[in-house]
Simulated scan of single mutants.
Amino acid sequence: MVRVRIWDLPTRLFHWGLVLCVTGLVITGNVGGNAMMWHFRLGYCVWTLLLFRVFWGFVGGYWSRWSQLTLNPSRVWAYLQGRDRFTHFAGHNPLGSWSVVAFLLFLCVQVGTGLISDDEIANMGPLSSLVSSHWVSLATSWHKGWGKSTLILLICIHGLALIWYRWKKNQSLVQAMWHGDKPMPDSVAPSTDHGQSRAWALVLLLVSAMAVFWIVSLGG
């Protein structure tokens, strides 16, 4: 087996930062009250991370790019049936590729609805004043109801998938996302992960944070 740098440091920090923020969002959302102040802050952090990941998907490490996601439906079906010609995937496998896209898109919807939600008690999204009351009502209902429940369900499915891969296929996906390297049966193209690429990632993160700050400020 050959150890190859698959996940660059910015991608790994994004992943674990998202884990912490989403966990915090679930906790603060359920606690409510004064914890909602942190709920909003964590929501802005998630939005910043999502924007960064979109950019990084075009210029980041080789295996972190959108072009490397296996999204062909026939490959997904073959993978589910155990007929895929690859037994070791450097990046995300076909099912994992769709899971990444679905989870990120769902988080975008959840953050977006949170920005225009209003519980009519003490908490109001920063952009709720810019849309009609009809859309505010729909966004609030989704964000606090089906949206929250679906998010918790997706987190549980993700955790169970990690356990299944470790038990059934003897593949520890967590370790690769922690230190970046992954054992492969053959040498593959490694992801770029040096000082210059990390500096660019920091610039993109700052740009994303400023974009979030500017958009939030539009609501006054």
Rank of each mutant, 00 (worst) to 15 (best):
A78T: 12
L80V: 10
L80F: 11
L80D: 14
Q81R: 13
G82T: 07
G82Q: 09
R85V: 15
F86Y: 15
T87D: 14
F89M: 02
F89A: 07
G91C: 05
G91Q: 00
H92P: 01
H92A: 12
H92K: 13
N93V: 11
N93S: 05
N93F: 01
G96V: 02
S97D: 09
S97L: 03
S97H: 04
S99N: 03
V100E: 00
V100M: 06
V100L: 07
V100S: 05
V101T: 10
V101F: 10
A102F: 11
L104E: 08
L104V: 13
L104Y: 03
L105E: 02
L105M: 10
C108N: 06
V109M: 00
Q110Y: 12
Q110M: 08
V111P: 01
V111I: 14
V111L: 10
G114S: 11
S117C: 00
D119P: 00
D119M: 11
D119L: 15
E120F: 12
N123Q: 08
M124K: 06
M124V: 15
G125L: 04
G125P: 06
G125V: 04
S129H: 12
S129F: 15
V131H: 04
S132K: 11
S132E: 04
S133F: 09
S133V: 05
H134N: 08
H134P: 07
H134F: 07
L138N: 02
T140F: 05
S141K: 10
W142H: 09
W142Q: 13
H143E: 05
H143F: 08
K144R: 13
W146Y: 13
W146H: 09
K148W: 03
K148Q: 13
K148P: 02
K148Y: 02
T150C: 11
T150E: 06
L151V: 10
I152K: 14
I152F: 06
L153I: 14
I155A: 03
I157E: 09
L160E: 13
A161R: 11
A161P: 02
L162K: 04
L162G: 10
